[in-house]
Amino acid sequence: MLRLENIHAGYGPTTILHDISLAVEAGEVVTIVGANGAGKTTTLRTIAGLIRPTAGKITFEGEDVTRLSSHEMVDRGITLIPEGRQLFPDMTVQENLLMGAYRKAARQHKDAALEEVLSLFPRVRERLAQKAGSLSGGEQQMVAIARGMMARPKLLMFDEPSLGLAPIIVTQVFDVIETIVKTGATVLIVEQNVFHTLKAADRGYVLENGEIVLADTSDALLHNDHVRQAYLGI
């Protein structure tokens, strides 16, 4: 479904990703594991069209999407739920959700999509009229995920969905993600909570200093000595 071939990317003169190649097949849950600064967020931002790669090729459903900008990627069915929620603080929760269905294709079914995500997030329904900025961190994360689903994306990318949340909320967030996975969604997830994420994922890539050093099934990675030492602390 999604294929990155020898991608180089970064910010201005600084190259962060060196020769990244990875693939996500339809219906799969794939995770990228790595330390802070390894380039996980940069990878997701590059796929989302926020960063233009300096070399390499990205294809999505057979189409070359390397040079497309972020709004064109949303049209193709790729949505990134960014790190730190990134809601529109002075807009109501409902307005935030509606922005998730901003593109023309999504606008036609925004009412149906709203019902779908609200049935998945009953807590969000209670907060519809509230300012997004007034919610707690966990609630904001739920709204961010719900907003990302409003466009009914084919590929949903999560960037650190549990970052900065209380442990009990983290469990809730993972429950939600697992529910989404069960609906057959294709998911690419970046998470500091490596153990939890590998448990939920089919496959994983290990990213170090902007390069992919390991790629395997989640089970194999969970038993890999390097992964256990560096990321699981076992």
């Binding site: 709004h71 949303v74 049209d75 949505t79 603080p89 807009m91 593109r103 907003r147 466009a151």
Partner: peptide
């Protein structure tokens, strides 16, 4: 308004 409040998130919405 979304662009004014959070430019990066607005981009992610496809704006």
């Amino acid at each position: 308004r979304a662009v004014a409040q959070n430019r990066a998130a607005a981009q992610l919405m496809g704006i």
